[in-house]
């Protein structure tokens, strides 16, 4: 590296905020306009319509016999059409979870979010939906949760449901049977 290059400061390297604000560094900024209106298609469309009605819908593949959720109109393993719909229970068990103290944009939060994969009763083993579990009381909410902990869906009031996965507010731990079913 030459002496000159060593003395040059590059953008992103040791610049102070004031130097940028006062125009010592040339900057330009831009804001993306990326907006979409995705077609849900048949499978997810019916699934979300089910949420609005307070139902969790799944499908059964006649090839591998799996009962799947979220539903799909083709089996990704058998590669065949699926047309058999089933209504699943609104209970299940936690397959895995995490206690998350940062939001999507990396802000620290005091009351954690608990994302979890919940295996739905009535669906095949390993078939779950990703959702949120209500944080149990206490400083260390994870101590009350285990893989296998049974939970139940807590729905939004009917009038507030809009056909979205968030029509279920969260999943609440079923009291007294944390590991029921084992």
């Amino acid at each position: 590296m030459t002496e000159v290059a060593q003395n040059v400061k590059w953008i992103g390297e040791n610049w102070k905020k004031e130097e940028v604000l006062h125009g010592k560094v040339f900057t330009f900024s831009d804001r993306p306009q990326a907006r979409y209106a995705w077609d849900t298609g048949e499978a997810i469309g019916r699934y979300l319509a089910g949420f609005k009605q307070g139902k969790i819908l799944g499908v059964r593949c006649r090839g591998c016999q799996r009962i799947m959720v979220p539903p799909r109109i083709f089996c990704e393993l058998c590669f065949r059409d699926i047309s058999e719909w089933v209504t699943l229970k609104e209970t299940g068990r936690i397959r895995t979870f995490s206690v998350c103290y940062v939001t999507w944009d990396m802000k620290r939060i005091r009351k954690p979010q608990i994302p979890a994969v919940i295996e739905i009763d009535g669906a095949s083993e390993g078939m779950g939906i990703l959702h949120l579990v209500e944080a149990p009381r206490g400083d260390k909410p994870w101590e009350r949760l285990r893989a296998g902990t049974r939970v139940q869906a807590v729905w939004k009031p009917k009038g507030l449901r809009r056909g979205a996965v968030t029509d279920i507010r969260f999943w609440r731990v079923l009291t007294g049977n944390a590991n029921a079913g084992h």
Binding site: W38, D39, T40, G41, E42, A43, I44, R72, I73, F74, F79
Partner: peptide, 19 residues
């Protein structure tokens, strides 16, 4: 427009036909 299917469902149709 193709509101009747998601990109996955649309592609699956084409794939089934191709195979």
């Amino acid at each position: 427009k193709t509101p009747q299917y998601s990109y996955r469902e649309m592609t699956y149709r084409a794939a089934r036909q191709a195979y």
